[in-house]
Amino acid sequence: MKLDTCDLAAYATMRADDVLILGQRLSAWCGHGPVLEQDIALTNIALDLIGQARAYYQLAAHGSSDGQTEDTLAYLRDAHEFKNHLLVELPNGHWGDTLMRQFLFDTYNFYLLEALTKSSAPELSGLAAKAIKEVSYHAQYSAEWVIRLGDGTEESHSRMQSALDILWPYTDELFEDTSLDVAVHALQVGPLPSALRADWLAKVSEVLQMATLTVPSLDGYHQRGGLHGKHTEHLGILLAEMQFLPRAYPTAQW
């Protein structure tokens, strides 16, 4: 059995959506960071993520019969067609909110890419081998900030604990196995997300402990829907801004 190009495109698009939306969020920090060095560092992560999104979208667009390109995929789909996790579309909040969201996602992204480097699809394994170098740096950077702010001042500690508490219900979705994941996994193209949970939880718990933060309970109610195109209210606004020019001037080339 071979993975249909159409499934591979859908899978690559799903991976791209996460990193594009998160990269778009981070890019809004550029010029507004708490200190110049960190403004530059966070922009680096945004650059990497949007670069990864391009690679995934190019893979998805390659061999598409309907003339898709990286830009039509990014700019001409509506919110319900995006399959990113809800976590990445949540607003930036303050620096601590952004870095906590980043840490939770980076750690997931690291284990995901680690699995994808072993993909039976060479396009994906090649892409993952390159991306994991970037993401292991991201994961280290965001973990350091979670520790620094968690174990910094009383104020920073309480800000980080509430960031964690607010974001936690969005983490369960990272490990949801969609039917596409199951199909992809059957052909050793990609992992079952549920299989990444144990590593993720171990790493996240270790860092949160170093940050003197309390890991929220796992059995609370979790938010889901992104993987099926059911998003928060935030995504529509993000897309309205991001897609404005190609939508307003449909015949223009940029």
Binding site: S27, G31, D39, I40, M242, A252, W254
Partner: peptide, 26 residues
């Protein structure tokens, strides 16, 4: 205009450009 750049390529170029300016400041 970073969040409204009309293509992914132009978004990356602009983001890197603005980041360079921050580096010049440093």
């Amino acid at each position: 205009w970073i969040t409204r750049a009309p293509s992914l390529r132009s978004k990356l170029i602009l983001l890197a450009k603005v980041q360079d300016e921050g580096g010049h400041g440093l």
